[in-house]
Design a protein around this nucleic acid. Structure first.
Lengths: 158, 158
DNA sequence: ATGAAATTGAAAACCATTATCATTAAGGAG
DNA sequence: CTCCTTAATGATAATGGTTTTCAATTTCAT
C-alpha cells in the first residue's frame, strides 16, 4: 500500500494496516525517529526526539505507538535492568544493523557488538526452527545478552 | 568461609564476604528461597516465599539483597517486558539448570527451554572468550531470548 | 562482652508506565 | 470532495514496582 505522495516510510504494509490501524502524523514521526536512531532509546528519549520535530506529541502517544509496534513485530523492546524499557526497530534500514549486547552489571554500560554474529547466525536459525516446531511459536526475533563486569568496574571492586 | 554450624549455603565464599558484606538471617532466607525455586520469581514473589519462613522480612530488604546478589554475579536479573524484574540464581545447584527463554509478545507467556542448548554451548563459550578479550569484560553469564507469537495468539490475531 | 559499622524494616518518595476521557483526525463510503 | 464512523490523540490522574530515608537492630572483629 504505497502512499499517495510517493514518499517511502518504514511503515510496513500489511503488518499494521489491514488490521484497522491508521497511519497518523505522530506515528510517522515516531517511526522516522526510530529509523534514524543508532542507539537504544527509552520512551522518553524517543518522545524528546519526536518533540523537536512535532511538538504537539504527547508522551502517552509514544508509549501507545511503541506498544503497537512491538505487538506487530516491527519494534523490539527490551530491558537492561535500569528500570526503563528500550526500543529498536526490528529491521533498521539505515542504521546499526543487527547486533547483540554486552552489559556491565555494575555501571550498566552497554556495548553493542556485531562481531561473532555471523557464526551465531546459522545456529540461531537452526534453533529457531527447532523451537518454532516444538513449541508452536512463530518466532519474530531473538535477543542475546552477555553480562559481566567492564574493566573499570573490575578495578573499582578492589 | 564455611559456617560454624556446618550447614552449606549458596553464599559463595569470597564473592560476597571479604567485601564488608555480612551473612544475615534475611539474606540466608532469600538465598534459600532462590535455590529452591524452579521459576523466575519477581521480587514480590520472593518476598512472599521468604515471608512464610521468616515473617519479619521486609520487601525493601528483598530488593536490597537481590541488588547485592546481582552486583556480585550470584543472581541474574532480567525483564520480559511485563513491568517487573525477575531473578534467578546464576548457578542453581538443585533446581532448573541452565535454560533459555521463549516469550510470546502478545500474551507474555514464557517458555523455558533447554533443548538446543548443548549445541549452543560451544559457540557461546567461543563468543564469550572473544568478547571478553575485545571489550575487556569479565563475563559472568548470558541470556538468550526468542520472541514471537504462541499458537493461541496467532489464532486470536485473525 | 563490646562497639563500630553494616543491615534492617516501615513509611514515604520516586518515577516509568498505564488508564481515563473528552477532543481531534483518518480514511472509506457515497 | 464531503460525511461520518471509528480510531487515535494528549492532558491529567492513577497505578504500581522500586528506591530512599532514617531510626532501630544486628553482625562480627576485637
Amino acid at each position: 500500500m504505497p502512499r499517495k505522495d510517493g514518499t517511502e516510510s518504514p511503515w510496513i504494509p500489511g503488518k499494521l494496516s489491514g488490521q484497522g490501524h491508521r497511519m497518523t502524523v505522530p506515528r510517522k514521526a515516531i517511526l522516522n525517529v526510530l529509523s534514524e536512531t543508532t542507539s537504544h532509546p527509552s520512551a522518553e528519549e524517543i518522545y524528546l526526539a519526536v518533540h523537536k520535530v512535532y511538538p504537539a506529541i504527547g508522551l502517552t502517544t509514544v508509549y501507545r505507538t511503541l506498544e503497537l509496534l512491538v505487538q506487530n513485530g516491527l519494534v523490539f523492546k527490551f530491558d537492561f535492568g535500569d528500570g526503563r524499557a528500550r526500543y529498536e526497530l526490528t529491521e533498521s534500514p539505515t542504521s546499526i544493523g543487527h547486533h547483540h549486547h554486552l552489559v556491565c552489571t555494575r555501571c550498566r554500560r552497554i556495548v553493542d557488538y556485531s562481531d561473532f554474529i555471523d557464526e551465531e547466525k546459522e545456529l540461531l536459525k537452526k534453533t529457531e526452527k527447532g523451537l518454532s516446531k516444538k513449541y508452536n511459536f512463530e518466532i519474530a526475533n531473538h535477543f542475546i545478552l552477555f553480562q559481566g563486569l567492564c574493566e573499570e568496574c573490575r578495578k573499582a571492586k578492589q
